[in-house]
Every structure is written in C-alpha cells, then in structure tokens.
Design a protein around this nucleic acid. Structure first.
Lengths: 193, 193
DNA sequence: TACCCGACCGACTAATCAGTCTATATCGAT
DNA sequence: ATCGATATAGACTGATTAGTCGGTCGGGTA
C-alpha cells in the first residue's frame, strides 16, 4: 500500500538525517555506525541493509544533501527583471538556505574535498550546479562586469555566499536586511567595472 | 651541545610535520597514532612521550601551525606607503604563504571549528592575529571604505584570502601576476565606497 | 494455505584503536 | 666513573570499530 512504501523508507531517511548531524558534529571517522544506528533508532543490521558500507552511506548522503539544495533553487531566472536583481535573488536564496540549514551547508563545506566521496559522485552533482548557473553566465558577459574567466567568477560567487553564511552563523545578532544587502554589495561592487 | 638540543627535538618535530600531513589527508579520527609514529619513523612510545594524548598532539599542532604563519607576517606596516598598498602587501603575503604551504592552511581551515582544539588554545592564538591587524583597523576607518562593523570587514578580508588560495590551488595554471592583482581588486573594490 | 522475500533485529567477530608498561640507551653534570 | 633524567623502543591491553550472520516478522502472491 502507498503509505507502507513511505514507511519502509522512513528508517533509511532517519539514518541519513542522523548521519548528517553526527558527521558534521564529530566527523566521519569520529562517528561510529553503532552510534548512528542507535541515534536513528534502528539496528546496525538495518543500517547495513540500506547502505552496504559506511563509505556508501556518506557518498549517498552527499548526493541527497546537494540535491535537496538544488531542488529549492530551480528555475528562478526572470528575463523581465534587471540582471543584478536576478543575481541577487539567486544569491539571497542560497544564503537563506544556508542559514536555515546550517548542517547541510556545513556538511558540504567539510566533505566536498574529502576522499570519502567518490569523484564520480562529486562530478555527477557538480554538473547540475553548472547547468543551473549557465543562464546567468550569459548575463555576466553582457553586463558591466570586470573581465575575468568563468571559474574565477564562479568561485567568487560561491566564496562570497559561503563566507556570508558563515559570518551570520558566527554573529547571528548582526543578521538583518541592511547587513545582508551590504554583503551582497561587497560582492557586486567587487566584480563590477 | 647546541646541535644535540636540535637533535633531541628532531623526532618531536617529525611527529608534528607528519601529523599535519596525515590529519589533513585523512582527518583526526581517520589517522591512527600508530600510523603517525610509523610514518614519522618513531615508536608509539616516543609519540606519547612528547604528547600525552592524541588531543594534546592536535592542540599543539594547531598552535605550532598558526604561530609559524604569524611569524612570517610580522611588522610589515609602512606608514610611508599609501594605505591600499599596505593592505595589499599583507593580503599578498598571506596568499603566497597559503599557496606555498597548502597543508598548513588546509589544516587550519579544517580544524579551527573542530572540538579537538580547546577553546583556550583557539583564543590564545586568535588574540595574536587581532593584534597584528590592529594597526590596519585604524587605516580602514580613515579611508574611503564602506561603513561596516569590524567583524564583517575582517571576515571579508580573511574570506577573500582563503577563497583566493583555494582558487589557485584548484587552477594553478591560472596563477599569474595579473590574476592575483585582479583577485585583490575584487576585494578592494568591494569594500570601497 | 503455503511459501517467499525484503525489512528489521542485535549478538557476534576479527581487526584496529589510543594509550601503558617495562626495558634499554644516551645524555649532561658531578 | 657514576648517576639521575630524559629519549626511545615495541610488545602489550582493554575498549571500540566496521561489518556479518542467522534469525523473526509480516505482507503479497499463487
């Protein structure tokens, strides 16, 4: 039956959610599978039923986390609006998402360089992010932006977003409309001619 | 004798160097003390002779790493030169240091948020960095900089440095005078009024 | 009814871990 | 030459680890 399909996946889901939290708080090797299972309220046998190895667990957690972020930032581009507003809108969406989901972003920041995630997995999900930004790349070329190669522009964009999220995580009392606008201007005025 | 004093500390030094490399590559819990000892070419007994616990090892490694960076960036401020040049000179020193010592910077990035380093240690070394930047803070206030609070300015400065290091680590073929100058302008034009 | 398959469990195992212990070696000082 | 202190070694230990195994349970199918 339909609700049983969901119920079946409930434990798998719980294992993923628990792993996200524990991996961020204590690291990959610092979190035992026994601890994940216990915290998630399942047996170790169940954990290894869904995930063949601990490596497969973190690998699939990486995909799951990145895809859930990607889903929330889809098809946002509005040709009617000025380019800067489009960029700011995307930037703001990522920043808000990061502040609302500190564990997800922390996990990605910590593990995107790690050897546990296979490069196949990294590449597969990276492609989707490049796709998302494709429509903006054209805009950057047509506007009053400093001359630079795509990779630098992308790293500046991402770097600024991650930096902003970490900053407001550190100083939550500073987070208000004015300061958020300011941090975007820091990025925009930097890349503007 | 003089060279014997150095020789005595040789193994301690080797343990620190080896730990830096292994902790970055495989994480804290992912690196066993036996592995560190073996790679460093000492016995486990020797490792625990110099470092009471694994926690003390990473704690002292953190101090050692940050202090070695700090030492190389001291007393650089030149009242004669324009402010922007002073800032760029400091910025450049950090960026070059980061590119020359990827393990050191990677270690700090990975572990400055980690629970293994005691907050006492973190605080003690953080003070010295704040001291270093004190002389620049005054300069920022007196120049044509956007109005913002110190913590945001500092996070932008550091964020840009770390971002730049990571970018050129990823695309070493892009690293040349022109692109390094450009990345600094990205920061400077961002914070400028 | 019978039986089959995937979900789920937790006791179990072989390997590995951080840290200890005891023994020897080498130092500088007297 | 002798001595206390420190440096070094590596076998050893109790605890913990990732992963296994043999089993129960319950819904779907024939």
């Amino acid at each position: 039956m339909f609700w049983d399909v969901n119920k079946l996946k409930e434990k798998e889901q719980k294992i993923l959610d628990t792993s996200l939290k524990l991996f961020v708080e204590r690291g990959f090797h610092g979190t035992s599978t026994a601890e994940i299972a216990k915290t998630a309220g399942v047996a170790t046998g169940t954990l290894f039923h869904y995930f063949k190895t601990k490596e497969e667990l973190i690998d699939r957690l990486y995909i799951y986390t990145k895809e859930s972020i990607l889903e929330e930032v889809q098809g946002d581009y509005d040709e009617e609006k000025p380019f800067k507003e489009n960029v700011k809108s995307l930037w703001l969406k990522f920043v808000c998402l990061g502040i609302e989901n500190p564990y997800k972003f922390n996990f990605i920041m910590t593990f995107h360089c790690s050897p546990y995630i296979t490069s196949f997995t990294k590449g597969r999900i990276e492609e989707k992010f490049v796709e998302l930004l494709e429509v903006y790349k054209k805009g950057f070329k047509e506007n009053e932006i400093k001359e630079m190669y795509d990779e630098l522009l992308m790293d500046c964009f991402w770097g600024n977003i991650l930096n902003t999220i970490m900053h407001f995580e550190k100083y939550p009392e500073r987070m208000n409309q004015q300061n958020i606008d300011l941090t975007f201007e820091l990025f925009w005025d930097g890349i503007s001619k």
